[in-house]
Structure formats: C-alpha cells, structure tokens
C-alpha cells in the first residue's frame, strides 16, 4: 500500500494543524450548572448510571461533568466563594497525551475528523490513558453497568426494562473493563456528513450539534467547525474572554472556555 504522506514520519507534528476541524466553545458566564448537558449526554451516548454508592466513590461515568470549586474553605463560612460552573468533557486535544500511551491503539487519533477516538472493543483496560489525561476526562467501566444479557432480566433487575429500551442504537454499549470518553457525538457528525454527502453539499454550520449543546437551556455550549472562520463556534472563540485549559501542556485542546464577562 502507498504510504500516507500526510502523516508525520519521523518527527512530531506538534506545531502543525493548529486549526483543527470540530470545536466547541463553552461560556462559563452563561452556564447555570443545571446539569441538563450531563443528562442529555448520558442519554445520547448510552452512558450507564452507576448508582449512588459507586458515584460517591468516584466512579460516575459522566462524559461531561459540571465542575464547581469553592474558595476560602479554611476561613469563615461567609468567606466561602464558589467559582464558575465549568462543564468539562474530553477536550479533543490535537496532541493528546492519552493516545500514545495506549499499547493497543484503542485510544487513537481520527485523522479525518481530528478527534480523539476511543475504540471500545480494542481496549484491554490498562487505564494508562486516563492517568495521562491532564483533564481527567476519561471514565472507566468499573462494572458491567450495562449488562443486559438474558440472565439479567426485568425479573431480577428493575433497571433492565427501562434501560434496554432507551439505548441509542448508533452508539456502542460498553461492557466492563473498557475506557470511554466524550466523542463530540461522533455519531451525529457522521450522520450529518452522510446526509450532506448524499445531498451533494458541505455540512452547514448549525445543521446539527452535540447532545450537550442541544440540551443547554442557556446556550452556553456552541459546537461546530473551527476551521471555518465564519462558523458560530469560530466567532465565539475569537472573543478576548477565551482561554483553553492547561494550555501550557501544549495539548492543543479543541474546547475554548469563555469567562470573565460582566
């Protein structure tokens, strides 16, 4: 087979392709912390519910989480201040630290979409990628939360009948022992691209959006093509309020956070 010349052969391409393809802007000033995005994401992506106990122990599998941080906890309670709500999902880094550490190419870069991929069935569960993610955006299937086998029927598990029917057929149902994370709703991207291709046109800006952006009542999340300077997401990212998380690590995340407005 002929070798793909777009690939970096012997040296890193850390400086290349700063543009990216798909991107997101999250306005922290608009976010009300209502968790609608979390719920929408879980529904769209077959994210299982882990139950109270596991969630309390840090095993909730939300692909997007609303971070809230408090300041001044050491002093008087009146001094305690809460920071902005910060919805956090996989930042779809261009130079993703999670990717090269996977021994089996389960965490791999999508060259055509410039997204991070997690190939569930390739994952052997070393969990190195999760350790190496500076944003802690990856979640692990600690148990068979989505075990809908015959043995696990409505008779012995009341969750079964509900959950079996709400699954999204476009998204893989994950079993125990694999890593997963936000995909920027790649199933919607593919659907829109297929539709556009069938109709012989490019994907229009705003034609589709991710589940979280769709659900956000405050329109705090904007999703779209960041290689298109006229798209909503590019325009929103251009503002002076924008910053990216841990930019010092040179991971080149595709999510821009807006904060500091009036």
């Amino acid at each position: 087979m002929s070798t793909n010349l777009e690939l970096p052969m012997f040296t890193n391409n850390s400086e290349a392709e700063l543009g990216g393809r798909w991107g997101m802007v999250i306005d922290k000033d608009l976010c009300t912390g209502c968790q609608a995005c979390v719920a929408a994401c879980s529904m769209e992506n077959n994210v299982p519910f882990v139950g109270e106990e596991d969630a309390g122990y840090g095993r909730s599998m939300q692909w997007i989480r609303i971070e809230r941080l408090w300041e001044g906890l050491d002093g008087d309670y009146r001094e305690v201040k809460m920071t902005d709500y910060q919805p956090l999902m996989c930042q779809q880094c261009h130079n993703a630290p999670c990717e090269p550490v996977c021994p089996v190419y389960a965490s791999v870069h999508s060259m055509s979409e410039d997204l991070n991929l997690q190939v569930y069935n390739r994952c052997v569960g070393t969990r190195y990628c999760a350790n190496n993610c500076p944003y802690q955006a990856r979640v692990f299937n600690w148990r068979d939360y989505a075990d809908y086998r015959e043995t696990n029927t409505a008779d012995n598990d009341p969750r079964w009948s509900v959950f079996q029917n709400q699954l999204n057929p476009d998204v893989t149902v994950r079993r125990r022992g694999v890593m997963e994370k936000c995909t920027f709703c790649i199933q919607r991207i593919h659907q829109a691209e297929n539709q556009a291709k069938a109709e012989g046109r490019e994907v229009r800006d705003g034609e589709f959006t991710t589940a979280c952006a769709q659900a956000c009542p405050a329109n705090a999340i904007v999703f779209g093509r960041i290689d298109d300077p006229e798209s909503m997401v590019s325009l929103a990212a251009e503002t002076s309020r924008g910053s990216r998380l841990h930019e010092e690590l040179r991971t080149m995340p595709r999510v821009t956070y807006l904060a500091g407005g009036a």
Partner: peptide, 12 residues
C-alpha cells in the same frame, strides 16, 4: 499507520 498524540509514525 495510525496517528497517536501527534507523534511520528516511525519514532526513533
């Protein structure tokens, strides 16, 4: 060839 983390395909 698969791309990971912006690293080269043939790393020395």
């Amino acid at each position: 060839p698969l791309l990971v983390g912006g690293q080269p395909i043939f790393p020395i």
